[in-house]
């Protein structure tokens, strides 16, 4: 049995899958580069797969033509869940799609389609929530900076949204769990890895004022006669609140 090591990115994974299809390996295992936990787990030979954009794009084209655009998007969402075992599940999903074609999306109640769909939904749901939950703070010189700690690796899904939205300032959304960030420089965004803060960034002169106004507004907006903290918690679970300005007690 051979273990294929890729760089951890979705493109890298597609390249690994493409490679296995090429050489006809039907029982592959996959590990991400730097995934120390997984290393001792596999007994087989480890083979490095290089990430080549071309080759990822070729596989994408092939899969989209066979199955559908939507099925590919589903696979991409599911991959970014970073759940243990997701690579193998997606290997089965992608190869099945290449075999059965358009019928893939009708196999809703069967494996692996069912699990992949479920995981993809979780990730897209979290990404959608974060479109609302990102909180920028203005640091010196008009730069906007936000910290998040999402379950899944959602930066690739939310960054394009913020490019379209906050186009008049440079900004950074920092995923503290993965030490990576989406950085926008007024033209485009890119992902940077291994971001570490040496210190909390210094805030602009007015940042505190606007945050305080927002906190007051938020407090006041609740209607006492309808008080329902349980419902609130259902929508804003406690784990999100650490980075939400309105929940931070001044």
């Amino acid at each position: 049995m051979t273990v294929y090591r890729f760089d951890g990115s979705f493109e890298g994974f597609l390249c690994a899958v493409d490679y296995c299809l090429d050489i006809g390996d039907t029982q592959p295992e996959f590990i991400r580069d730097g995934d120390v936990q997984a290393v001792g787990l596999f007994a087989g030979e480890v083979r490095e797969v290089a990430t080549l954009r071309e080759c990822a794009l070729t596989l994408r084209k092939r899969f989209v033509e066979a199955a559908s655009q939507e099925a590919f998007a589903t696979a991409r969402y599911a991959f970014h869940s970073h759940k243990t075992g997701i690579e193998l599940l997606l290997w089965r999903y992608l190869t099945l799609g290449l075999q059965v074609g358009r019928r893939l999306c009708l196999m809703l109640a069967e494996e692996p389609v069912h699990s992949v769909n479920r995981i993809a939904r979780q990730v897209s749901h979290e990404a959608h929530k974060y479109k609302g939950f990102v909180r920028f703070r203005e640091v010196e010189a008009g730069f906007l900076y936000a910290q998040i700690e999402p379950e899944a690796d959602i930066l690739p899904f939310i960054a394009p949204h913020f490019v379209g939205r906050v186009g008049d300032r440079p900004w950074m959304i920092h995923d503290l769990r993965r030490n990576q960030a989406a950085l926008y420089d007024l033209t485009s965004w890119r992902l940077i890895r291994d971001v570490e803060l040496s210190a909390e960034p210094a805030l602009s002169a007015t940042e505190h004022d606007y945050a305080a106004l927002w906190q007051r507004y938020f407090q006041r907006h609740a209607i006492a006669e309808r008080h329902n903290p349980k419902l609130q918690q259902q929508h804003v679970p406690l784990r999100y609140r650490k980075h939400l300005t309105e929940f931070i007690i001044p």
């Binding site: 959608h128 479109k131 609302g132 939950f133 949204h161 379209g164 939205r165 906050v166 186009g167 008049d168 007024l186 938020f218 907006h221 609740a222 209607i223 006492a224 309808r226 008080h227 329902n228 903290p229 349980k230 419902l231 609130q232 259902q234 929508h235 804003v236 939400l244 309105e246």
Partner: peptide, 21 residues
């Protein structure tokens, strides 16, 4: 480009108050 704002057809909630709205 260079401006602030866009809209999405499904709308986005940013937070929920103590009454769950």
């Amino acid at each position: 480009a260079g401006a602030l704002g866009n809209t999405t057809s499904s709308g986005i909630c940013h937070t929920w108050t103590a009454d769950g709205r």
